[in-house]
Each structure stands twice: as structure tokens, then as C-alpha cells.
Simulated assay, not measured.
Amino acid sequence: MRKLDRRWLLLSLAVAAAAAMAARLLGWWNPHADIRVFIPEELARYRGGPRDPGLYLALLGRVFDVSSGRRHYEPGAHYSGFAGRDASRAFVTGDYSEAGLVDDVSDLSYSEMLTLRNWLSFYEKNYEFVGKVIGRFYGEDGLPTPELTQVETMMTKSLEAKKQKLKEKERFPPCNVEWSSTRGSRFWCSQKSGGVDRDWIGVPRKLYKPGTEESHCVCVKTTGPPSDQKPGDPTQRNRGDLDHPNLREYADCSPRAVTCFSSP
């Protein structure tokens, strides 16, 4: 009886697998059945010309109908080079030549990837998504390629870096700065310096980039615990962030002065 049950189970699995394969080949089963998949030559027909079937463009392999923005993308318009293709790279570089209107974004920086992500958000918000184009970012089955996964990873890291930068700016807001030929540079702090509103003023300090001699003026909180210190820490000192290891005082400037000068 056990042997019969086992044969029945194996037969059932084989039949199910064969049915699934047949359905997939016939197009009945597709996890992305509602999403159209273009080949590049097909997408190239959608340039908005008189006899063209529509006006589409692709960004990171995602195809959008930009007919509502026709004046920007139709033949002869400023951004007509984007129509009918994936020109992801040009969204960042601004190179609208044939050599620049390509989908290769492999060498873009993290900040450029963030710009590209912002463009993708723009098109997702303002235009209809109509499908995907086979190539660098999507396969024939409409599934993401390893290169798209890498791009998305870079975008995630870019967002994290941006959040970290904003967090550091809140901790160390940039100083107000002015320069004159007679007095040199003046650095000072206020409750709105660097575009950061806060309930403290702080004092000017040089904040050095780790491992370099590069620095810029920031305002540093002088009271309370350090910004990165956990509440209740027994080593807590009432010096704000003054003891941060990457900070240096300005020469000939009182440690608690709100304004400092440097020679012209």
C-alpha cells in the first residue's frame, strides 16, 4: 500500500509539473502576465511620430507612456532623444548625444544614483507605467537582472548616506561665513546658521574629514551631553559636542566665542 501511495504521489507531481510547463509555454501562466514586455526594436517605434503607435520612454528598464508630456518628448522637442529607448544614463549626465543616450549606469556615483532614483519617482508619479524593456535591467521573463539588483542596492546605500549626512548637519550645522579684503573671513553661529533651525547657537569649530586635512566651519553645541551619548551614561559631561575628536578650534579665537576671524 505504501509503495502504491508513493507511486501515485510521484505521478501526481509529474503531471502537475508538466501542466505548469505547458501553461507557461502557452502563456497561460506568468507571474507578470499583466505587464507588457518590450524588445528594444519594438520600443523604438514609440517615438511619437505621426505613424508611431505612441510615445514611450524607459528608465532603468521600466517603460512609461509620456504622451501627456508630448511637447517635451515628441520629435524635435528638447528631450526627444529619450523617446523610444532606455537612456537612463543621460538623466544624470545631461549628455543627449547618441553616445550619451544609453542605459549603462554602472559607473555612476552614489549621489548620481540618488538623482536617478528621484527621476524614477518622478515618472512613477506623473506618467503611466506600461511595461518593461528586455535588456540590461530585465530579462525576457520580465524579471530583474543582477545588474538592476546592483543598481537598487546602490540606491539604498545612497539614501542611507543622505540620511547620515542630514543627521550630521543637524549635529554640526554649517557656520555663517562672510569675507572682506580688509578683515578676512568671519565665521559666526546663530540659531539658523546653515539652514538648520535649533534652540541653541553654538561656537565655531573646524570639522575635519577623517583621514584628511580637509575641514569646514561648523557650529558646535557647548552644553548638555554629546549628541551620540545614551541617556544615563555615568561618564556624561556637560560640554555638548565640544570633545568630538574631529573638531579643532580656530587660532586666535576664544574657545567660547560665537564669532571668529581669520586673516585676509
Score class of each variant (00 low, 15 high):
44 A>F: 01
40 P>M: 06
259 T>P: 08
45 R>S: 03
217 C>D: 00
246 N>H: 11
41 E>Y: 08
94 G>S: 10
233 D>G: 02
173 P>F: 11
60 L>N: 03
118 N>T: 10
239 R>H: 03
236 Q>S: 15
258 V>E: 02
106 S>A: 14
152 E>Y: 08
145 T>D: 13
168 E>N: 14
158 S>R: 01
151 V>K: 06
39 I>V: 14
261 F>C: 02
161 A>D: 07
197 D>W: 04
20 A>W: 01
143 L>P: 08
264 P>T: 07
22 A>T: 11
81 G>H: 07
223 T>W: 06
123 Y>K: 07
160 E>F: 09
203 V>C: 07
152 E>R: 14
32 H>N: 13
157 K>H: 11
229 Q>W: 11
128 E>C: 03
262 S>C: 12
218 V>S: 03
159 L>Y: 13
9 L>K: 11
43 L>W: 02
132 K>I: 00
90 A>E: 07
90 A>K: 01
234 P>S: 10
227 S>K: 12
234 P>D: 12
112 E>I: 02
167 K>E: 15
52 D>L: 05
106 S>T: 14
242 L>G: 01
133 V>M: 02
109 S>K: 00
36 R>M: 09
25 L>C: 09
90 A>F: 02
74 E>Q: 14
112 E>Q: 15
29 W>Q: 07
2 R>P: 03
237 R>G: 06
198 R>A: 07
161 A>E: 07
152 E>V: 12
56 Y>F: 15
204 P>F: 07
158 S>Y: 00
263 S>E: 15
127 Y>M: 04
215 S>D: 14
112 E>K: 06
20 A>P: 00
94 G>K: 08
126 N>A: 13
213 E>T: 06
55 L>D: 00
258 V>Q: 06
89 R>Y: 07
219 C>N: 10
180 S>C: 06
127 Y>K: 11
89 R>G: 01
80 S>H: 09
39 I>C: 10
119 W>L: 00
182 T>Y: 09
116 L>I: 08
20 A>E: 01
127 Y>G: 04
80 S>T: 13
9 L>W: 12
220 V>A: 08
67 S>A: 07
125 K>C: 05
112 E>V: 02
146 P>E: 05
57 L>Q: 03
157 K>P: 02
179 W>M: 13
162 K>Y: 12
172 F>M: 03
48 G>K: 00
228 D>R: 01
156 T>N: 15
1 M>F: 13
167 K>I: 10
237 R>N: 10
21 M>C: 08
195 G>C: 05
58 A>F: 00
256 R>H: 13
257 A>R: 14
85 R>L: 07
169 K>T: 09
50 P>S: 09
50 P>K: 15
148 L>F: 01
254 S>H: 15
12 S>H: 01
170 E>P: 02
66 V>F: 02
261 F>T: 03
7 R>C: 03
137 F>L: 08
133 V>G: 00
241 D>F: 11
1 M>G: 14
199 D>W: 06
77 A>R: 15
69 G>K: 04
165 K>F: 01
24 R>W: 10
159 L>E: 15
145 T>N: 11
169 K>G: 00
240 G>Y: 08
230 K>D: 14
104 D>T: 11
104 D>S: 11
79 Y>C: 01
99 A>G: 03
149 T>Q: 14
200 W>V: 07
4 L>N: 05
131 G>Y: 09
